[in-house]
Design a protein around this nucleic acid. Structure first.
Lengths: 162, 162
DNA sequence: ATATGCAGTTGCATAATAAAACCAAATTCG
DNA sequence: CGAATTTGGTTTTATTATGCAACTGCATAT
């Protein structure tokens, strides 16, 4: 549950989580990537309460991640489709999925494989790389604070302050 | 209320979110990656309520993402450091950050840049790639349901069922 | 015309979070 | 060294998000 909003924070991670950080959001996006389009698809797949699903879907539409419109196949019902913004969350979904496969897989194995469509093979691990495409060690990845943001002080006491 | 748990789901994304899906978890992990180690670091940086921080830190320790132990510098206080499991969440953090930079950046720009340490340059976009290292179109990424998992029915009515 | 399914909405109960006060141990200051 | 402050919490109280069940209005099926 949350009362506190991240929307005033300058950090891009916080600002992203403002939109996709609530309990069900990323699972809804996952289902949308797997082809779910209608209210009942999400509801059946997730077992989420209907009012909660209504809220989450509306939030995602407001965030521009899903678009709501009349069904493509002529049905009178509305459907929810990912926008480009939404589709570009794929790296997040892939990273979560691959981490889960490695560290917290279900006893029966994962339910879904992320693949290269053309070959049907499993997608290589999504991972930070240099411009050349060469994968990096995590220790080679840095985080630099910008000048336009207030500096952070991780010191433990006065004497630590060089 | 009893918030539904994802831990019984077979999907790796859901199982991962069980550990890092709550409101503050990923921001705590972000701070840990940026060098935060002590309770007060997280508390000051996030403005999170102390009891909530206590809960989130304990959950992350239970999940094996953070390890709690005596401080390295001799201080009697405990400190929280990322385990390998935790460090391997870097792709998730990077993907969230880069999505935010592109789609929901703050007016003053992002507060933090993710970089290649050696060169100081901005890290290339984390993105699905083939074995060769070549970046893919999102439309080339597939999701295949495993046989050990119950199939999903996205059909809209009886007639749709081939 | 009646029944069933869909996509919600509403009301109530409860769990998760926040805010504030409180506290023991550790650390810093005088 | 002793007092004051900081740290890392815990407890209490209040608020908000979620779950569950029932209800509604519309469209489709029988």
């Amino acid at each position: 549950m949350r009362t506190k909003s991240f929307s005033t924070m300058q950090c891009s991670i916080a600002r992203t989580l403002e939109h996709v950080g609530s309990w069900w959001s990323l699972l809804i996006i996952r289902d949308a990537m797997m082809g779910a389009r209608r209210f009942k698809h999400f509801q059946r797949s997730l077992g989420i309460a209907r009012n909660t699903l209504t809220n989450r879907l509306n939030d995602l539409v407001d965030a521009g991640i899903l678009a709501k419109g009349p069904a493509a196949n002529g049905s009178k019902h509305e459907e929810y489709v990912l926008t480009e913004r939404g589709r570009e969350l794929a790296p997040v979904i892939i990273a979560l999925s691959q981490w889960g496969d490695k560290w917290v897989a279900h006893d029966n194995g994962p339910s879904t494989e992320i693949t290269v469509k053309a070959t049907g093979e499993r997608l290589p691990r999504i991972w930070p790389r240099r411009e050349t495409g060469e994968p990096m060690q995590l220790s080679e990845v840095g985080m630099r604070r910008n000048e336009n943001a207030p500096p952070i002080d991780w010191s433990n006491s006065e004497e630590d302050k060089s």
